[in-house]
Amino acid sequence: MAEDILGAGTEGADIVSAGPEFHPMEQFTLEPLFGGHAINWYTPTNLTLWMGVAIVAVILLLVVGTRRRAIVPSRTQSVAELAYGFVYSMVEDVAGKDGLKYFPYIMTLFIFIVFSNFLGLIPLSYSTTSQFAVTVPLALLVFFTVTIIGFVKHGIGFLGLFWVSAAPLALRPILAVIELISYFVRPVSHSIRLAGNVMAGHAVIEVFAVFVGVSVFIAPLAFIGIVGMFAMDVLVAFIQAYVFTILTCVYLKDALHPAH
């Protein structure tokens, strides 16, 4: 009984009729596209739909937009060139010249995240990057790839990453433990940062949206809140894609040049 009231559920609203209904997390529910309840590993869901939309957007903007190969670029072509130059210089500046070999993979990550983030901002859309099931594999992919690259390139010398040769000898084992922990925390923070930011933005907008329906006096304030949060989310959508990519570059740099 009491759990029903405070469980933020639909049943609770019947009893506490005065209070607003909060379902800020409902927008992230995975649903099969073609009815039914079962979600097998192959079932097309709303996540599939919006990933497909992202792929179509990538094709429209990056493939169709650049099809003329103009010397003086059109608008869409210059967007594609801008994205290319942005990621390319990021990889070159952070990971170094020998990191450019991995540029297509990093570009794939960036394009996927930035398109997913922005498509998730469309009202009633499903933001794929708010799912831990999406960001955790991404972060683990980066983590394992980078670790494997490090060991392949430097062999056992890659462990020098944890042995801070600049520190006094007595401190080095302690620092090694700290470095080791921080190394293994990387995928956690890497994935939760992205999903958490996107989720937080959407959930807060949802909460404000609930307040719009509460009373005529609160509605304008809540509306301003929604607009402000939306602007913030547009910023966050880009910055989080940028941060995810640049952290990937930083980790890649650590793998390519492990010496401290």
Binding site: D93, V94, S189, I192, R193, G196, N197, M199, V243, I246
Partner: peptide
Amino acid sequence: TAMLFIGIAFAEAFGIFSFLVAL
């Protein structure tokens, strides 16, 4: 600026963690 954003990302991650705990 790259370092700036990395720093912001690290600092912000912990805020997101606390938000996550709340959620």
